[in-house]
Amino acid sequence: MPIYRCKKCGFVCEDAQTPINTQAACGRCGTPSTVYGTVYFVEELVKRLTIATRELQTLKAAAEAAAPHPAPASPGALTSAEQHAPLLQWFAARKIEAQFDYANVDTSGFFDDAAQRLGDNYALFGELIDRVRFAYRKSHSWVNLELGKLPQKDAQAINQLCRQLYEHTFFARYHYQKPEKIVRLTLQTAPAVRQFFDGGWLEWYALMCLLEHARERAAGFSCARGVKVVFPNEDLHELDVVCLPTGQPPICIECKSGEFRRDIDKYLRLRKRLDVDRSRFLICSADLTQEQAAGLSAMYELSFVNLQTLKDHLQRLM
């Protein structure tokens, strides 16, 4: 049922008589108020509540980070303010405001597992990612994969992955036509899944690689994904994946599942503003060959890696 909230007196009321997106007089004070659909109204309330909660968590983390020599956060509590506090303090010491979404490192779901499956066998699963991403961008609701021309082992692996992704709700429907060897997938409409296929999977993959090496080699660490950083002149940037091993400078990974060459100069300036060594500021592209990554690293004061060289590079850093 349509609903409105008066901006003047705060009165909330249902209004079945007034069309959505038009104005009705407030039942309490008479002030004209816009009428919204109930679903839209509730979604907006949830968004504002989420933003307020995040701001409160950031303030709490800042207060905790102000304590002298904070202990490294426990790797097992990735979504806590305490885990993010060392990173928050590192940025604050450079007069940079860092804004975190703690849920971005929540590994209790299936995003991290799916990303590792895709990244560890990108040569085989890369086309699936591209097909799904293309379908989303063209507003298509389905994808058909013809597996008949593939080697039997590869076809079975792709089919098995699609079925598992469906079981974990990455697809709304899955059907395998065995005689024709065609996988029919109906896309999931949830924004989080669309963002995953649109490049989020690579951020998750980089995060899990960082966590693997940090847990094995670092005495402690703080990590985050999708960090918004605001410089003193109010310039806003977003860092895809960041890890701060105890006693070391941070490692920043920018993840690129599409074209990135036009952004090289932007990343050069960002690295210098953060004062991070070129070896610790990585541009990870799934489509680079090892020769291309080595060549770009020699040309620019950045480290370019692909999915095969990412882990080796991290091993050398920690």
Rank of each mutant, 00 (worst) to 15 (best):
A157P: 02
L150A: 08
S141D: 12
F134R: 15
E203M: 12
R163P: 00
Q164I: 14
D198K: 11
F170Y: 09
V132F: 04
N144M: 10
I158W: 01
G220W: 04
P191M: 04
N121C: 06
D154I: 02
L207I: 05
L124W: 04
L150H: 06
Q164W: 11
Q164Y: 11
P179A: 05
A135N: 10
V193I: 15
R215N: 13
L147E: 04
R184S: 09
Q156T: 11
H168G: 03
E180C: 00
G200N: 07
R133L: 05
Y136D: 08
D130F: 06
Y176E: 03
L147A: 06
H168K: 14
F221R: 05
A157W: 02
A190H: 12
A218D: 10
A218H: 03
F171D: 01
Q195F: 04
A192W: 05
K153S: 13
I129L: 14
D130L: 10
H213K: 12
S141K: 13
A192I: 11
A218G: 02
R173M: 03
S222A: 15
H168Q: 13
Q160C: 05
Q152D: 12
A190L: 08
F197A: 04
A214T: 09
A192V: 10
T189L: 03
K181G: 03
R184D: 00
I129V: 15
A192L: 13
Y176H: 13
Q164V: 14
Q177P: 00
V193P: 04
Q164E: 15
G126Y: 07
Q116C: 12
F196R: 06
A135F: 02
I158R: 10
K181I: 02
A218W: 07
N144C: 08
P179W: 00
E203A: 13
W204D: 09
L185T: 08
E203Y: 10
I182S: 01
S141V: 11
A219D: 09
F196T: 04
G220L: 05
R131G: 04
R173G: 03
F196V: 06
D198T: 10
Q156Y: 06
A190C: 00
A115G: 06
L150V: 08
Y122L: 07
A123L: 11
Y122H: 12
R163I: 08
A190T: 07
Q195P: 00
Q116V: 08
L211T: 10
E127H: 13
A157F: 07
H213V: 06
S139Q: 15
L202T: 07
W201L: 11
C162L: 10
Y176F: 15
A135H: 07
T189C: 00
Y136S: 11
R217P: 01
